[in-house]
Design a protein around this nucleic acid. Structure first.
Lengths: 335, 335
DNA sequence: TTGTAGGCGTTATCAT
DNA sequence: ATGATAACGCCTACAA
């Protein structure tokens, strides 16, 4: 029931003015060593800690970064968030987190709440629905504030903020090259994210590849309902000759993995599987899947670096658009 | 670059006092409709929103709940966190999140930061290291504050806070009964969490079951290094006759799943696998695993309910120790 | 119906 | 070497 002790109370208890207390605690040279010691000891005794809210008001700096992500159950976002937290911490920042569950409305709500002076900067990955409906008006409010904003992964020309993303086009091509080299001439493209800008970009890359390599037969399976996609996969895998499956996201890749198991084909021997899983999942799954590493660690780190930089320097008009060029297909290490 | 507008500025621009503005915006009956309308319109035009930090200071209520969890990459915690966020939101609360990565030191740091008036309540799952070293002193500081604290999942008698946990003992027995009924007489117990209180409790339950059912042969494999555990599993599965594997946590269960696949045994036919995975993982994995549902949704919801209750009522001395009794082993639905 | 003053906890500036 | 005062943005008695 003890309310946290304040400077005022310390001052009262010690019979000094509260400015003396404040100065003592901040090691001001104006105060005698004796008084300082007395104040500090009593403060320690009573477990005094400065009230951060009062400090935030005084300094108009909250040392808090707002993070808005679609879904924490998605391993990619979990990894990014983890690394955002780690790096924010290292800069002395905290994070307040909102999950939109891929819903526009929840994104609007979150943005509204966070634009009330609660945070010094904002890191966002917009929801699927935002892209489907192409509604970006709710970003306007935050745009003409001096709070820096950074968008990661799902970038879009309508969102003129700082951004960190991966080179989707390039990594798809590189993945396809990898499959091609392994002999694949009939490739199945599986996606549960056709609505997202990244999903579209990846599909474009696939189509480009097919155009450049007419000897390759491509099949595209897209669906937002995971349950349906697996049946579609099973159907195609049973009826057509498929050399390789390329999953465009964690879900489609894992579903493809399951489908291949179900029809009893051998991984690597009969069908190659490449996809966007991550270490975390792959570590626990058998057989291991070759995958495109999106470097969520790097994304989280860069996002924080940029935001903290802008917070300290002041939000400039010059936008940083970082694209993580690096991508690799790590080969199957199992067996 | 526009700093957010304040009540003062609105008052100045409109030529009224700032209390008039404040009252108008709060729909006070003291103010004439005409003035109210004028003020509201101008405030809307300028995009005024009350500064939450100032409000927090004024009301000494932050509408923020601090959450400290070991690891967001763990699907169980991800699910709990998600549901904490959902429910907190429904009560008008935000969450500020810290990840300890199972480290005592990070837990201490997080606790220290959050005890500076930043949050109205605290939801914590202590780290593995905290239990290993049995250091709980850092909780003292927070104990004699009036900030309500709740511990979930990893409860301990040294932590006398509100708590939400599952009936570990009961669910293990129930899981073993399930395996027994399916004919298992040689059961392998796999765990990567021997240091945690839950891990110990689960092992106790297993040993109790073996004592009560002497006809069952039990083998215990424990290790904190996942890589090592899988080799241990492979070794035992190859050399001994095992009817069923019971994984004590996500990692050991997934590793067991992989190991069974590797040695080419048939799930369900030759070996039953039961474990602590969750829907999220299981949805994407083949073959599907029977699992103990810990109801992370329920844990998250109850934790928030209790904390918000305590925040509103005032932190009472009476502790709520909720144990989620319900548990089910959902049967393999694949094929 | 409107304006003034005080206070939430802190620090910084200015006296004493 | 100390103490008083103002300010951060807001709300709310109380006064006018």
């Amino acid at each position: 029931m003890n309310k946290p002790i304040t400077i005022k109370e310390i001052a009262r208890d010690l019979g000094v003015s509260f400015s003396t207390v404040s100065k003592s605690l901040n090691d001001s040279s104006e105060i005698s060593e004796k008084t300082k010691k007395k104040v500090k000891e009593y403060a320690a005794l009573r477990g005094y800690t400065p009230n951060q809210i009062a400090l935030s008001l005084k300094n108009s700096a909250t040392f808090t970064i707002g993070v808005i992500i679609p879904d924490i159950q998605n391993a990619f976002f979990a990894s990014v968030l983890k690394n955002i937290e780690i790096h924010a911490k290292s800069y002395g920042y905290r994070i307040v987190t909102f999950f939109t569950n891929e819903k526009l409305k929840e994104e609007e709500e979150s943005l509204k709440i966070l634009s009330k002076g609660l945070v010094d900067g904002l890191i966002i990955c917009p929801s699927e629905e935002t892209f489907k409906k192409r509604k970006f008006a709710h970003f306007d409010a935050v745009k003409n504030m001096n709070t820096p904003v950074l968008v990661f992964d799902r970038v879009d020309e309508n969102l003129d903020f700082d951004s960190v993303s991966v080179d989707d086009f390039g990594s798809i091509i590189s993945g396809l090259d990898y499959l091609y080299e392994k002999g694949a001439r009939s490739i199945l493209f599986a996606s549960t994210i056709p609505a997202l800008s990244v999903g579209k970009k990846r599909k474009e890359a696939f189509e480009k590849f097919l155009k450049d390599n007419p000897e390759v037969k491509g099949t595209i399976l897209e669906d937002q309902e995971n349950g349906v996609l697996q049946n579609m996969l099973l159907e195609v895998l049973k009826t057509e000759k498929i050399d390789a499956v390329f999953g465009m996201d964690i879900d489609s890749t894992m579903l493809a993995s399951g489908a291949i198991s179900m029809i009893g084909k051998e991984f690597k021997e009969e069908i190659s599987l490449l996809g966007y899983v991550n270490k975390q999942y792959n570590r626990l799954v058998y057989p291991k899947i070759s995958y495109i590493n999106q470097f969520p660690e790097k994304i989280g780190q860069m996002a924080v670096d940029i935001i903290v930089d802008k917070i300290k320097i002041g939000n400039s008009k010059i936008l940083k658009k970082e694209v993580i060029e690096t991508f690799i297909a790590i080969k199957d290490t199992s067996k």
